[in-house]
């Protein structure tokens, strides 16, 4: 599903974010990418979204080398990858419903498809009662649910989450994690970059630990800092 082959990323300012990283993520996997800030987690996410280009190495998504796709094709790559961020990134002027429907309008879905799909996804993330609320009327956890709903509305095969619980209290964080797990159970490959130790430890999923741009550890079912 996702494959990195000897990927190195050196930013223009000379900082080396990833050093010769190789990894494979299979379809339907749930993967934590852990590490302190500056370990290269975010760079990894950005590389997968083709927000930044690798300095060297290949990145394959669905057997397609994304280094070779043109700027024009990036939107179509991103339609296959849902993404959520620590800061939710919702549009403050749009309601919950509109924020989610927006992602479908962008891919030029028909109004009928939108009317049919959006309420289902809203109820899946448990926000049916708040469909008409605006982001500033929601708690952090609720906002992240909206972001999650938006990320999966177009049924991408891959969901990337960059510190999805970073701004949330532990209880809410758990709710989001269980949602991510639900999404994974439905067949979506989920990659979560995080440093939420308790969650990683408790979930016992595959953990890829990064440190200063190098893979420190890659365990099938592990905790956050088995060796860190």
């Amino acid at each position: 599903m996702i494959s990195l082959q000897n990927v190195t990323k050196i930013y223009d300012n000379g900082s080396q974010a990833l050093k010769n990283v190789s990894l494979d993520i299979e379809k339907g996997e749930f993967v934590f990418v852990v590490g302190s800030s500056g370990s290269g987690k975010s760079t990894l996410i950005k590389l997968l979204l083709k927000e930044v280009e690798p300095t060297s190495g290949n990145i394959l998504i669905n057997d397609e080398n994304i280094a070779q796709i043109s700027r024009k094709e990036i939107p179509y790559l991103r339609r296959k990858i849902g993404v959520v961020f620590q800061d939710f990134r919702l549009l403050p002027s749009k309601t919950v419903y509109e924020n989610i429907a927006f992602a479908m309008q962008v891919v030029e879905a028909t109004p009928r498809e939108i009317r049919r799909t959006v309420p289902a996804v809203i109820s899946m993330v448990g926000l049916s009662k708040k469909a008409k609320a605006y982001p500033n009327q929601l708690s952090g956890g609720e906002q992240q649910r909206v972001a999650l709903a938006r990320a999966i509305i177009n049924k991408p095969p891959v969901l990337l989450a960059d510190e999805p619980t970073g701004n949330l209290d532990p209880e809410t964080a758990w709710e989001i994690m269980s949602l991510l797990k639900d999404i994974n159970m439905r067949g979506t490959t989920v990659v979560v970059a995080t440093h939420a130790k308790e969650i990683v430890d408790a979930m016992q999923k595959r953990v890829i630990a990064l440190k200063k741009g190098v893979i420190l550890r890659d365990v099938r079912e592990g905790g956050y800092n088995d060796e860190i």
Binding site: P75, R89, L90, L91, V106
Partner: peptide, 14 residues
């Protein structure tokens, strides 16, 4: 808004 549109896969012309 533009940023978010880019992340959900909007084309430049859109």
């Amino acid at each position: 808004e533009i940023n978010i549109m880019k992340y959900v896969g909007a084309t430049d012309w859109f």
